[in-house]
Design a protein around this nucleic acid. Structure first.
Lengths: 231, 231
DNA sequence: CGCGGCTTTGATGTTCATCAAGTAAAGTGG
DNA sequence: CCACTTTACTTGATGAACATCAAAGCCGCG
């Protein structure tokens, strides 16, 4: 983990469009004074479940997983999110401590803003509050619908769904490096690693997927979508 | 469904403590002018997934289920909530239409406030916005952790978990009328009805539960908690 | 009394986890 | 750069958990 605090570039940050569109340039500069940007390397923990919440965290670049540990030692992945989505999840306003852990799946940069300052902004600026409500609601709804979708599918359907999720939501391409291990895919969809691998092999055998080293290529998207839907 | 609009009692509504503690008496009276109270009978639909959202709904009395329909015809229950929790869920700020349906499990009364007015309040009153953020976050986190908990458990664990959920969160008692059919329990935990029944019978045989007509009594809470935890 | 809903139970088959063994890939130290 | 170790991945065989199917019991209601 590395801190880093350059001349304020927040005014022109793309970021701003998303959460802070209600703040004018002066306000953004002020916000900037309450901000630290931290970078994390692939695999690093950004925070652990149970850690006290005192920052509002936003993913600026990279990719992270939100997860928790189960009693029997393995992880349960809640979601995988890309830049401009919340890192700290929505609990910042309702909890004292993070309910879930967050770790970097790729090298990542996180904007961390003093939570007390964000709360002050909510109290003072209705538009800002509204923007936040909208964003938080959306993030939550995404997680919930993801979980419901996965719950009703069989193994092949789940694996197909996750591949399409990565392809559509994260990489916007039919070809991408899978950012998670087979075990992590298993932890995401709640299945055993062995069966995830088996299913991937099946997909390969059927010509739906092709692997080149760490990269996967979706060769028959229609078929994959069908499996995801019907599973 | 029945509308009903008495002299404004909102000033003294318990309700107020939860979502509207930031509003003074005068504001509550104003809010009241944008409010309709509707009552629903057991089984009635409060709204369907896909319906446009134009009210902020709060459950005043009764019990409701939040659910959606799956492709193969049965329901997927997201959560069951009791009075003073959101009915419309959190999507009110992020979606145009309800993502899920809501139906009354028991005779219920719902406070419906004009959504445009709520949004106006958020913009004008930071404290109100903060209260809403907190409440929405909490409701979401509850749903997510519920889903994650259920996901990792086996059948017996899930059934035990749901019984404890009803006992603890809804009825606050070891003895209560199960407000849902066996099929609905199955829809809630994502298992087949036959196996839910089988598990309940097992629990009865082992002296963990006792049934008197529609009422269930948790006789060995410790054991049920253990099954829920270990499942 | 008889009909239709919900509920229960048993028998059977499928899906998936688990176990175990083996292979490829990626570090690591000489 | 190569042997060595470790880690990630892969595949097959087996058994447990659970869905599905079918039949029967219960209960309220006309």
């Amino acid at each position: 983990m590395k801190d880093f605090d350059p001349e304020c570039l927040c005014v022109s940050c793309e970021f701003r469009e998303i959460a802070f569109s209600y703040l004018d340039d002066e306000m953004i500069r002020e916000l900037c004074r309450h901000k630290v940007e931290r970078t994390y390397r692939k695999g690093e923990i950004i925070h652990n479940g149970g850690d006290p919440i005192n920052e509002f965290k936003y993913l600026k670049s990279g990719l992270v997983k939100l997860f928790r540990n189960t009693r029997n030692g393995d992880e349960q992945i809640v979601t995988i999110t890309k830049p401009f989505e919340f890192v700290s999840n929505m609990s910042i306003f309702s909890e004292e401590r993070y309910p879930y852990s967050v770790a970097a799946l790729e090298d990542s940069a996180v904007c961390c803003i003093d939570l007390a300052y964000i709360k002050k902004l909510v109290l003072e600026n209705g538009g800002f509050a509204m923007g936040l409500l909208t964003k938080i609601s959306k993030a939550n709804e995404k997680i919930i619908s993801l979980t419901l979708d996965l719950r009703q599918k069989n193994l092949a359907g789940k694996v197909a769904y996750v591949l399409l999720y990565l392809s559509r939501e994260i990489y916007n391409s039919n070809v991408f490096d899978i950012p998670v291990s087979r075990k992590e895919i298993a932890d995401f969809i709640g299945m055993s690693m062995a069966n995830v691998i088996r299913t991937l092999s099946d997909f390969k055998r059927e010509g739906i997927l092709a692997f080149h080293g760490r990269t996967v290529e979706i060769q028959d998207r229609k078929k994959l979508e069908l499996i995801s839907l019907m599973g």
